[in-house]
């Protein structure tokens, strides 16, 4: 039985590294991204590094109009790649600087649309298929920013919070059908999102993070922090009383 992983946002470093982990473990891959020119080398690379069968799909899943068709296409193409369960990894998102959002308030809509709304709708459309399959796994990347709203990053954080709350509910819905759902809560990953950003520390290489996520998903974990110590950092941050928290420059 060969499982198939659909990887959304496959050109992001974390998704690419996760796809390579899945490929090494013997899965077939359907890599989905919106930029064909960037996707082609990522797909060739995953195939050469892992020997996996790799298919690609160019789609912008931030476009609401195409989501129904996208869900169908994704599922059918993935099903054709292997005889095992279809699984899904989603690491798509946008993180404009808060200052830019302050200058262009219409970006709030864009951030929520990409990070939360489109992904939730797509998952909603795929959920019955996962239930019918009675198995498989979904891994979705959230953010530590979702766990406490901070002036430096609250629009992004709020969009991820919406996503993570949605995932909690979806996890409960899919559980009876034997479908697992892992929420990934990354701290700082060493990607273009954080490169050269002041105030970042202990950034994790995407390859290291992907390995940890892969293992956590394989063990059926519900929530995984990467790197691991962010679980404890966020525990402390969540415990700070709001009257004090609002005074902190975070």
């Amino acid at each position: 039985m060969r499982p198939v992983w659909i990887v959304l946002g496959a050109t992001s470093p974390l998704a690419r590294a996760f796809a390579i982990e899945a490929g090494r473990a013997g899965a077939a891959l359907l890599l989905v991204a919106r930029d064909a020119e960037r996707l082609a080398p990522v797909a060739a690379d995953a195939a050469i590094r892992t020997g996996a069968e790799v298919d690609t799909l160019v789609a912008d899943f931030a476009e609401p109009a195409g989501l129904a068709a996208l869900a169908t296409t994704c599922w059918d193409r993935a099903g054709a790649l292997g005889d095992g369960p279809v699984c899904l990894f989603a690491a798509a998102g946008t993180m404009p600087d808060q200052a830019q959002i302050d200058a262009q308030p219409e970006l709030v809509r864009r951030v929520f649309a990409v990070n939360a709304v489109s992904l939730a709708e797509l998952l909603q459309r795929l959920a019955p298929r996962f239930e019918a399959q009675r198995g498989g796994r979904i891994v979705v990347v959230g953010s530590v920013a979702a766990e406490r709203g901070r002036p430096s990053n609250y629009v992004y954080g709020a969009s991820k919070a919406a996503l993570q709350t949605y995932l909690q509910g979806l996890r409960g819905r899919l559980f009876p059908a034997g479908v697992g759902l892992t929420t990934v809560v990354p701290g700082f990953l060493d990607t273009a999102m954080t490169y050269g950003l002041p105030g970042t520390f202990l950034v994790a290489a995407p390859e290291t993070a992907a390995r940890r996520i892969w293992r956590a998903a394989a063990r059926g974990r519900e929530v995984v922090y990467v790197p691991w110590f962010w679980r404890w950092i966020m525990l402390v941050i969540r415990l700070i009383p709001e009257p004090l928290f609002k005074r902190l420059k975070l």
Binding site: T94, P96, Q100, L107, R110, A192, Y195, G196, L197
Partner: peptide
Amino acid sequence: MADLPLDAQRRLRSATA
């Protein structure tokens, strides 16, 4: 592609050391 300029700008961030 409303966020393209933003993405481009983000990728052009540098680190001084």
